[in-house]
Nucleic acid binder design. Structure first.
Length: 761
DNA sequence: CGCAACTGTCATTAT
DNA sequence: TTATAATGACAGTTG
């Protein structure tokens, strides 16, 4: 056996390099298209391919490898970690999927407020209490949300539960990788090869990902849960209104935090400190806008830019505030908040948002957003009397420009209209919001188990190489000593139990298909070969890769528990060899022999009937040269030779069929998992987007409030406040703020308006 | 008995 | 060309 070369040299005949790009592109694209269609993501695959977007490209190309030749040996020799279910054979595909996942998860890194998301998720106050900005206050409230109830226990409990679920699923998958050290000896590798050649399932494997990855995924999971909660709070019509409002935000949103503090201070310094008087009348154009559809990619880029620019500004506190907003309290939506808001003259925007948002939250609460108002007019009903004048005031002031760099600022004010397409608004329509909720719900309820199993696999991945481990069903079946198989781990023992159900412990005497077993029996066989009859012990483990106990727990594989080894003696050839029915009554030895006979395959019976002087294992698994050499050593009849050739052909084909089926199943599983991952990522990204938009809107509201505050404190030479309808604050590029007549401001604004949306009286 | 799942086998094609 | 692998299709076995 030591002399054995790769029996399945056919694999080597298909090096990875041979994988045609065409195959990748065609099959990969096809699969990915299917995935996308399943997910509902409308993405131009070609665009992403050409744009060389790494994650998507990997996603596209990844699954395709499932159909490619599996480089078992190469992969195995990499000693890299991977976790695979018992039927999983396509390690290439698995690696691809892993790489894909890792890259997708890598996206998490860029995202600004992962922790912030968690924060507001956890602390969201469904009661809508204003004071809920405190993180600690939200936890109890969280459970009260409707979706939360649907999804189950609170996050804290949930996380642990998911972990348990992972482990269970992992076991189901049979992918539990035993903690094998990464260092493998030559013998180990050889053993792996041997096991593999013996039609052993390579399924179990260790994961590529380390603990941090798993943690990351868990975080993502938690985010999903949280996201589901938060989104649950959105009323249907609210989502639409929100989307529209968000659009407006998107226009102006991208850069304003940076300049804010300085501007504020500059304004406030020049203003006498008097109680605000006109704040209520001031309506911020920033809150209004029109939705402009945008392609997904552009939105992505915009979103990214927003993230980058406002990462520091968008913090957990704002998020908390946003989500602590009282549900459905339209009354609080009026702009009375300004008086209640103590404006610190010198506070930075960040501080202002922290302090003011808690009180101003009502303006940005989902309920407010949910008001059935479109674009700029959304907030008008909320404004008491001179809302229109206020609008005009704001529109002319170009206040937004104060906070947003020109290149990014799409003229936030209503009158100006969206100079630039809203990068975010297009994504955030009602349907999308609904989709988010549904997706989260589905993921949490439906996909969590699988997802959990994935996580569990990753968790176990560290343990190391599981290919050859005794834990893997395949190894169990193939273990040459097989006596050890009985003592194998629980996962493996299940497989042995299945075998034992039909066979006594004797099955372990010979490593069924294992080459090692051949070697062990070689001498004996050859010694008895002349006699022509070598009592082969049944190949109990032949089918062992299908560990029923493990697979039964896995939804996909629960039906794989069969062990149709064709134990019966069907052919007339071996009928004579079969013991009579009364054999069972004979001694245990004969009983055992009978049992073994029944475990023999048809070809084995035929071989025995034909007095084939060597085992079927050899016939099937020996390399061609050795096989021919073996044949040459015996004087075999033509019938025998024909049978031997058939046995070899059938045996190889049987293994090929098994591999094929495993591969097929693995492909399906991988695709399924990819779909889940993509759905999860999509949901997460959408959630993040919503979060950013909310934060953005909140900050804009802050700006508006400050504007109102400043404007309200302005007094003319007679000590009277300026009328918002007659004056507006105009800021210059250098950061200075001027009080100018509204007519002038309007002119300037109109000059900048691409699509005038005049609301003046 | 019928059905579903699993498995082995054959034929065909690809490598 | 040969050997082998892959795979669809079919049939047998089992629960």
């Amino acid at each position: 056996m030591a002399t054995w070369s790769q029996p399945d040299s056919g694999f080597s005949g298909n090096p990875p390099a041979m994988l045609s790009l065409k195959k990748y592109l065609t099959e990969g694209l096809l699969q990915f298209t299917i995935l996308l269609s399943l997910i509902g993501v409308r993405v131009d695959v070609d665009t992403y391919l050409t744009s060389q977007l790494p994650p998507l490209r990997e996603i596209i190309l990844g699954p395709s490898s499932a159909y490619t030749q599996t480089q078992f040996h190469n992969l195995r020799n990499t000693l890299d970690g991977y976790g695979i279910h018992p039927k999983s054979i396509d390690l290439d595909n698995y690696f691809t999927a892993r790489r894909l996942l890792s890259q997708v998860r890598a996206l998490d890194r860029f995202q600004v407020p992962t922790t912030e998301v968690n924060a507001w998720l956890v602390h969201r106050d469904p009661e809508g209490s204003v004071s809920g900005s405190q993180p600690s206050s939200g936890l109890a409230l969280e459970s009260s949300s409707g979706l939360q109830d649907v999804t189950g226990p609170d996050n804290g409990v949930r996380e642990s539960e998911t972990e348990q679920g992972f482990s269970e699923d992992l076991e189901d998958l049979g992918a539990v990788a035993p903690p094998v050290s990464g260092d493998l000896t030559k013998e180990d590798i050889d053993l792996i090869d041997i096991l593999w050649r013996q039609d052993i399932d390579l399924g179990a494997g260790r994961e590529i990902f380390d603990y941090s990855h798993r943690l990351k995924e868990q975080d993502v999971d938690k985010e999903l849960q949280d996201g589901a909660e938060q989104e649950d709070t959105w009323p249907g019509e609210g989502a639409e209104a929100l989307a529209q409002n968000l659009l407006v935000d998107g226009e102006t949103g991208e850069s304003f935090p940076a300049q804010f503090p300085a501007d504020i201070s500059s304004i406030t310094e020049a203003v006498p400190s008097e109680p605000p008087g006109l704040q209520n009348n001031l309506l911020s154009p920033l809150l209004t806008g029109t939705e402009s559809p945008f392609d997904l990619e552009q939105q992505w880029q915009d979103l990214m830019s927003i993230m980058e620019m406002q990462a520091m500004e968008v913090n957990s506190s704002t998020s908390e505030i946003l989500y602590n907003a009282p549900p459905g309290d339209p009354l609080s939506t009026n702009y009375s908040l300004a008086p209640n808001t103590p404006i610190n003259q010198n506070v930075s925007l960040h501080q202002a948002s922290l302090g003011g948002c808690s009180q101003d939250f009502s303006l940005f609460s989902p309920e407010v957003e949910s008001l059935p108002v479109a674009s700029g007019s959304t907030l008008l009903p909320l404004v008491p009397s001179n809302s229109t004048s206020l609008n005009s005031t704001f529109g002319s002031t170009n206040l937004a420009g104060l906070f947003f760099p020109p290149q990014l600022n799409g003229t936030a004010n209503d009158t100006a209209g969206p100079e630039l397409p809203d990068p975010l608004g297009g994504l955030l329509d009602e349907a999308m919001l609904d989709e988010i909720s549904l997706m989260d719900l589905a993921i949490e309820e439906g996909f969590n188990p699988v997802q959990a199993s994935q996580l569990e696999e990753e968790f176990d991945s560290d343990s190391g190489l599981s290919l050859d481990s005794s834990h893997s069903p395949s190894s169990l079946s193939s273990s040459e000593g097989s006596s050890s198989s009985s003592s194998s781990s629980s996962s493996s023992s299940s497989s042995s139990s299945s075998a034992s159900s039909s066979a006594s412990s004797s099955f372990s005497e010979e490593g069924a298909v294992g080459y090692s077993s051949d070697s062990e029996t070689l001498d004996l066989e050859e010694a008895e070969g002349a006699v022509g009859y070598q009592p082969e012990y049944s190949k109990f483990c032949r089918m062992s890769y299908q560990d029923p106990s493990q697979l039964s727990c896995l939804p996909y594989l629960e039906h794989v528990g069969h062990n149709h080894t064709y134990n019966m003696a069907p052919s007339a050839l071996d009928a004579a060899d079969l013991p009579p029915p009364g054999a069972l009554k004979k001694g245990s030895k004969e009983k055992q022999a009978d049992f073994l006979d029944k475990q023999m395959s048809r070809d084995e019976h035929r071989a025995r009937a034909m007095k084939i002087p060597f085992t079927n294992d050899k016939i099937i698994n020996l390399p061609v040269e050795e096989f021919n050499e073996l044949l040459s050593k015996y004087q075999l009849s033509e019938a025998q030779l024909s049978l031997i050739r058939d046995i070899r052909r059938r045996g190889k084909n049987k293994m090929a069929a098994q591999n094929c089926r495993k591969r097929k199943l693995d492909t399906i599983l991988n695709l399924e998992r990819d779909v889940e991952d993509l759905q999860r990522d999509k949901a997460r990204l959408l959630r993040e987007k919503v979060e950013f938009l909310r934060s953005l809107r909140q900050m804009k509201q802050k700006v508006q409030s400050l504007y109102q505050e400043v404007f309200g404190r302005l007094r003319d030479e007679n000590g009277r406040p300026y009328s918002p309808s007659q004056y507006a604050l105009q800021y210059a590029g250098d950061g200075s703020v001027l009080l100018i007549p509204r007519t002038l401001a309007d002119q300037q604004a109109r000059r900048q308006e691409r699509k005038p949306k005049d609301r003046r009286k």
